[in-house]
Amino acid sequence: MMTLRAALCATLLSVCATSAFAGNPNVGGAPMFENKNIIQNAVNSKDHTTLVAAVKAAGLVDTLQTPGPFTVLAPVNKAFTALPAGTVDNLLKPQNKATLVKVLTCHVIPAKALSSAIKKMVNDDGGVHVVETVGGCQLKLSLKGNKVRITDENGGVARVTIADVKQSNGVIHVIDKVLLPKS
């Protein structure tokens, strides 16, 4: 039988553990902690193993651990497998590092943009808000219903499937497509 002291300790531990990611959704089956940075959280998501491998291959781990702030549009593994056969393997080759860096940095906005701010910008701009990424890509943000959509420079459209995953150095929005720079 649990003592009152043990029950109180268990409750306090639960509250403390929960408060570290209160309001943050799980991503890829893992809790996302607001007090951890983008890399510390992303490595725990089983839905982002390809993205994490690509970030490591591109040498962007240290950058995404800095204070930022960053908004990362994080494609799930299925988004990478939807690319033409061999694309990911080709991008991960050392001789293609510059192209990989360009693709990945086109998923990073140099600001912390929660979905409420994005929706306001889209509405204030008459339905489409253009944003420049760290990689120099111009993305068009829009809404379909209440969901944020992102159109890349080639007309490819990704939708945010999990919004507002708060990080110590920004925010992650999980997306269902890989955004590609103008070819």
Rank of each mutant, 00 (worst) to 15 (best):
M1R: 07
T3P: 06
L4C: 04
R5I: 03
A7P: 06
C9E: 09
A17F: 07
A17Y: 08
A17H: 08
S19N: 11
F21G: 14
N24P: 10
V27D: 06
G29I: 05
P31D: 14
E34Q: 11
I39C: 08
N41Q: 03
V43T: 14
N44V: 03
T49M: 07
L51F: 11
A54G: 06
K56G: 11
L60F: 04
D62W: 00
T63N: 01
L64E: 02
Q65V: 04
T66K: 13
G68A: 14
G68L: 05
P69I: 04
T71L: 00
V72Q: 03
P75V: 13
V76I: 15
F80H: 14
L83G: 14
T87M: 09
D89G: 10
N90T: 13
Q95F: 07
K97G: 10
V103A: 09
V103D: 08
T105L: 05
T105N: 05
T105M: 04
V108E: 06
A111F: 01
M121H: 15
V122T: 08
V128T: 15
V128Q: 11
E132H: 05
E132P: 03
T133W: 01
G135M: 13
Q138Y: 02
K140W: 01
K140F: 03
L141H: 01
S142T: 11
S142K: 15
S142L: 08
G145C: 06
N146P: 00
E153I: 00
E153M: 07
E153K: 04
V157G: 10
V157D: 12
A158H: 01
A158C: 05
V160I: 09
V165A: 06
S168C: 02
I172M: 10
I172D: 09
I172L: 09
H173G: 05
V174E: 12
K177I: 00
L179K: 14
L179M: 14
